[in-house]
């Protein structure tokens, strides 16, 4: 969508970190690379490709958790030589060790997904990291258009495919929206071959979470149009009214204008005309 531009025209060597987590397929619940996180890696790779031609830029793909997790291989298959893993119990709190790592490594851009596909998926990690590091955070980024003189131009995804342009000073954290470019295919060969650079870190268990109970999501009933009936007649009418979904309405002999009006009314009622 955007013209390819020189990302680091000034020749500053960008240090990019993409944070990855273990994803979960929505249908099968099977472990996979998470959708938004893999887009974060894709964006990191794109910045790398289009950046400093002398190759001064670097991308670190970082995970905090179990290095043996097969879901990580999915990211490696995008063509990574290695994945940096801070080894800790997957149930432990990852923010503290990640924050320490980032503080030491001092990257320019940290890319994450908006929400994890497993666990609490509250989307708080990037905010907590930003708070800890004192960096700005841009949520729901669709693309990073340019990085020049320590300022990045970023496109933020808004609902219904809209975009907002933002300028942000480095270093910053960006959470990558599902509207960002699709991650490239994960290939089996590189996925199997990639190295896991493991660093064992101290972590504290997430005590708050131990008291939580988890269950498969129940289907939430759609809210019904509640009819506040004040009289028996109204209640009777509400109970016996023909349900709307029964069969479709077919307009065959009406004029085109009438037909168009009916469609228009339905579109308006559904709230898709804005």
């Amino acid at each position: 969508m955007q013209p390819k531009q020189s990302i680091a025209a000034t020749g500053n060597n960008l240090k990019i970190v993409s944070l990855i987590s273990v994803g979960k397929h929505p249908q099968s619940g099977r472990v996979r690379r998470a959708d938004q996180d893999s887009r974060a890696v894709e964006l990191g790779m794109k910045l790398l490709d289009s950046g400093n031609p002398t190759g001064g830029d670097s991308l670190v793909v970082l995970h905090a958790g179990d290095p043996k997790e097969p879901g990580l291989r999915g990211y490696a298959g995008m063509g990574l030589n290695s994945v940096q893993v801070l080894e800790l119990d997957p149930a432990a709190d990852a923010v503290a060790p990640l924050g320490e790592y980032l503080q030491q490594f001092a990257p320019d851009i940290v890319l994450t997904g908006v929400r994890a596909e497993g666990g609490e998926s509250s989307g708080m990690v990037p905010y907590q990291l930003a708070e800890k590091l004192g960096w700005p955070i841009v949520p729901r980024v669709a693309d990073i258009i340019s990085v020049e003189a320590g300022v990045a131009e970023v496109l933020q995804a808004l609902p219904r495919g809209q975009r907002r342009s933002l300028k942000i000073r480095l270093p910053f954290i960006a959470s990558i929206d599902s509207a960002a470019q699709d991650a490239r295919q994960s290939a089996y060969g590189p996925a199997s071959r990639a190295m896991m650079d493991i660093e064992i870190v101290d972590s504290s268990t997430d005590q708050l979470r131990e008291n939580w109970s988890e269950a498969p999501a129940k289907k939430r009933p759609k809210r019904l149009k509640v009819i506040k009936a004040k009289t028996a007649a109204e209640r009777f009418k509400a109970a016996t009214a023909k349900s709307q979904s029964e069969g479709g309405k077919v307009m065959q002999n009406e004029s085109a204008a009438e037909q168009a009006q009916a469609i228009f009314d339905l579109l308006l009622e559904e709230g898709v005309l804005r």
Partner: peptide, 28 residues
């Protein structure tokens, strides 16, 4: 520590959607 995607909340417990909407977490 916020309760995200909370959909059934009273003063004691909240039920939140977790794991990308595939689980319900019951928590204080």
């Amino acid at each position: 520590r916020p309760a995200a995607q909370a959909w059934q909340v009273d003063n004691q417990t909240s039920i939140c959607r977790g794991a990308a909407g595939t689980i319900d977490i019951t928590r204080t």
